[in-house]
Design a protein around this nucleic acid. Structure first.
Lengths: 260, 260
DNA sequence: CTAGCCTCCTTCCTATAGGATCTGCGATCT
DNA sequence: AGATCGCAGATCCTATAGGAAGGAGGCTAG
């Protein structure tokens, strides 16, 4: 589904849609996809404020394209729930999910991931290998993040994003190994919302140690070939993620309330 | 998500996009949504052959609109998987899912529906009432369909469609009663694929008796307040649906194979 | 002097026409 | 026979006109 765009954006690195197209016009990509990637980056980076209106013409001017591809990219984004469209008023960035929405999101995620894990373990396929690989990537990303964490200076955004993606890749590898493309697509659809959440609430990864430890437990259970233990470890992990996310959200809400 | 378009299309009845717009221009809807509804109807009615290419200009001419709203509606449809888009070649109707895809589809559906049912029963909310209502509607639609079934003359398409929607509404009411909008949206996303499947494979409803009986068992278990029994009944129903669908698909494949 | 209403203006969305580019196929030349 | 060139078809993007919705400002009545 949206794998292509995602992967493309990640692999070949966002491709400077603003660059002047004087030279090297060879191998022109589809403009709509580049606009889509650019908008997705803006949305996940919080460069577009939630609730703010999205002007088609304004975005077109900003990106240096005509309104048509912008309109198309927005129609594509509308299906993800990151932007909403009202009758004749245009598009707007979807407001932040509250605590209730967060609970629903984590519940839906649990349903998918736990059942996917059960099936992936039962298939006895290449789950253990991929999971080990993803876990190694996650550990490396965490190490890089800690390494870049100077005294009272948060790591650059690209490092944070790399950590988030490595964490997420661990979970994606499970639904991937379940062999069911529909389960994978549904979890990926939830992924954008989750990304936005952690980017907004935490504004900094504070739970990488807990996440790595819990991932490690899942991995060991899978390697041991114990489905029930793996599912239990996954449920524990998701409960932990949810609890920590709720704490962060409440802290954020408190900060916002103090400010008013 | 796509509820709006769906509901609108069903409630206010597909709104004749081809109608000449000479008079009664009052209450002008968004053209993009009408095109979307029209395309969705064409896709689910098999009026657009799977694998066939979708010309933007051709569709625009056929619907009497400019290419712009058609392009937007296609971009919106692309996210549902009913149409696919290749680099610079344009859109095409997604090919029919084979037996393997069907299995994945039913598996994903089972994951969602069973867990949603478990949560809906636990919430002790208005599930029983809505479920009873949906079941009554399903029975009525089945009766109407049987009534319209003359000797060797299938019922008109609108009656068949009404039956399908009543059947599906039973399942949707469960995820709706789970209280989780994400679970509901995900199942609705699978719904379009399922619709297309039953329309293509069965080409006639042959299992309405079994479906009604199994639905009744689910309803009674819910009314009795027994979660495990309700889940068991649902699992049984989904297994039955899957088995019958596979039979139909194999029969269809056999017919196609005979023809070649 | 203030509150309500009307008018104008800016902004945005919709829709159309047209130019530029890419693909596929057939004819021609080596 | 194989490869190259040219033409038709389609797609994608741009540019622009027309129309509707929302907001700001001024005018009038109390």
């Amino acid at each position: 589904m949206s794998d292509r765009a995602w992967v493309a954006a990640r692999v070949q690195g966002v491709a400077h849609v603003n660059a002047p197209r004087t030279t090297e016009v060879l191998r022109r990509q589809l403009l709509r996809d580049e606009v889509y990637d650019a908008l997705l980056d803006m949305l996940l980076d919080q460069r577009l404020a939630p609730g703010g209106s999205l002007s088609i013409d304004g975005l077109a001017r900003e990106l240096g394209v005509s309104p048509t591809p912008v309109r198309e990219a927005l129609a594509f984004l509308e299906h993800t729930g990151l932007v909403v469209r009202t009758a004749l008023k245009g598009y707007a960035v979807a407001p932040h999910p509250g605590a209730e929405q967060l609970g629903h999101l984590m519940e839906a995620r649990s349903v998918l991931e736990i059942e996917a894990l059960r099936r992936a373990v039962a298939r006895e396929g290449l789950l253990a290998g991929r999971l080990r690989e993803a876990h190694a990537g996650h550990e490396a990303a965490a190490a890089a993040m800690v390494d870049a964490w100077g005294p009272a200076s948060p790591p650059p955004a690209v490092v944070m994003r790399h950590y988030f993606e490595a964490d997420w890749a661990f979970h994606l590898s499970i639904v991937e190994a379940s062999g069911n493309p529909y389960l994978r697509d549904m979890l990926q659809g939830l992924g954008t919302h989750l990304h936005r959440l952690v980017q907004s609430a935490g504004r900094g990864v504070t739970d990488w140690q807990a996440a790595l430890a819990e991932h490690g437990r899942i991995l060991r259970a899978v390697e041991g070939g114990d489905p029930d233990q793996a599912v239990a470890a996954m449920a524990e992990h998701l409960a932990g993620v949810r609890e920590r996310a709720v704490d962060d959200t409440l802290a954020l809400a408190g900060r916002v309330a103090d400010r008013t």
